[in-house]
């Protein structure tokens, strides 16, 4: 009799632990999913004077998505590591300055539910620089010491310069502009 009661108690404990574990997993994965799911669409029809080859198109899509995932990680965790690789030149410097400034002020930014409609508008004759315009939408959440002080859905227009690196396309310029 006592063994039946003991096993019921164990069963309830196991159920509770399973529920808590499931809840924690769901919370962790939903948070990760929000950051990881960066949607990028690329339109290269207007690119000139050089046409964008399909392989290049795939590279741009992959590297631009990765760049924004990296921005989100760097700004949320206030760490510089994600900025190594996808960025170069003044874009990298600007993002580094942002992270360092956040580290001093104790602020963090989250870029959630990102969606980017990217359009190539200029591709240099020799393929060494590409200008893209990004109509981006995301939820911007700003926290001060863990407390959310601002949360809004943002529609933003970016002018982007990308250049080919050794094994990827890197962002050299990332400049928000008023909607044109």
């Amino acid at each position: 009799m006592s063994s039946i009661i003991t096993s019921k108690i164990y069963l309830r404990c196991a159920q509770r632990v399973a529920w808590i574990a499931a809840f924690l997993c769901a919370a962790v994965f939903s948070s990760y999913g929000a950051d990881a799911a960066v949607q990028v669409q690329l339109d290269t029809k207007k690119a000139s004077p050089r046409a964008v080859e399909s392989l290049t198109e795939r590279g741009i899509l992959r590297d631009y998505r990765f760049a924004w995932t990296s921005i989100a990680q760097a700004m949320e965790a206030n760490t510089l590591d994600p900025l190594e690789g996808p960025f170069a030149g003044s874009a990298k410097q600007m993002l580094r300055d942002t992270v360092v400034s956040q580290q001093h002020s104790g602020l963090t930014r989250q870029y959630l539910n990102q969606s980017h409609r990217l359009e190539a508008v200029f591709y240099a004759p020799e393929g060494d620089v590409m200008e893209l315009h990004d109509s981006a939408e995301y939820d911007l959440r700003i926290s001060d010491g863990g407390k959310i002080i601002h949360d809004e859905h943002v529609v933003m227009h970016f002018v982007v310069l990308m250049t080919p690196g050794a094994d990827r396309w890197v962002i050299r310029q990332l400049q928000a502009t008023p909607q044109s």
Partner: peptide, 13 residues
């Protein structure tokens, strides 16, 4: 009050 400036390269409180 607290003032915040959040922009490219800056995050001031």
């Amino acid at each position: 009050a607290n003032f915040y400036l959040v922009g490219p390269g800056v995050s001031r409180k």
